[in-house]
Amino acid sequence: MTKRKNQLTHPLDSLVRTDRIPHIWCPGCGIGTAFSACLIAMKSSGIDLQKTTMVSGIGCSARVPGYTNLDSYHTTHGRAIPFATGMKLGNPELNVVVFSGDGDLFAIGGNHFIHGARRNMDITVICVNNLNYGMTGGQVAATTPSMSKTTTTPMGNPEPPFNLPLLAFASGATYVARWTILHTRELTKSIEEALQRRGFSFIEVLAPCPTGYGRRNRERPLDSLRFYQEKSIVKNDAHPADIILDYQKGITLGTFVNVDRPTFTDIYEKTCRLDPAACM
């Protein structure tokens, strides 16, 4: 009986809304791996999970909070970071984790991302980058490689993509890392580190989207994983301007930034709670 019970439970079940499974993700999708890495990190980090809340925008990756058995908020497209900002300031005791996709966080939500990083808002932002808008069927995103085909760039993408860690660094993020879903241990460790530290932490997770992106670019799920294995170079502490994400040359992975800087709240408490007579 005990054996049967063991077979039926998964170590992460307590963190999953099992009554919501099956999930919406396609076969070969990488989001599930990023999801489980996040849950493992949440458990191992030792943070108070009752005080932990997940926030997302819209898209495939934005469905993660809905499957997580914690307080979770599935908000509007691109607006997870300002929503999370309000949550953190409304109750500074909360650990606020934004889990969303590249289209959500960097196209429609790009402005919010750079300002969240600039303020060093004490939140953790995990971005699954699958190089396209998956939920709507594979359209070009701000992260789609040049010349790649999507339903809205049928002849090839004429635009260059963002280098997300460089953008995060330039905007002021105090923790910046990039991993792939093949590098689950490093990814998990990185999320754990981000959850335990204060300040704006950003982790990019490269993940295949065979349905939306792969099939139009001759990239099967295993091709993506093989690529992650063969072409990735781990260079911790590399300058974000030097890291690459180039399907010919390779991908730089690692933790690139991990610095201390006072958060928005730290500075607000010190400067804004003075007697107003003293400031006017």
């Binding site: 908000t75 607006r79 300002p82 309000g86 949550m87 300031l89 409304g90 109750n91 300002h115």
Partner: peptide
């Protein structure tokens, strides 16, 4: 857009 989003977030946090 962010202002209104932050207001909702703060309210959900209890403020």
């Amino acid at each position: 857009i962010a202002a209104m989003a932050s207001v909702l977030g703060a309210s959900c946090a209890g403020a």
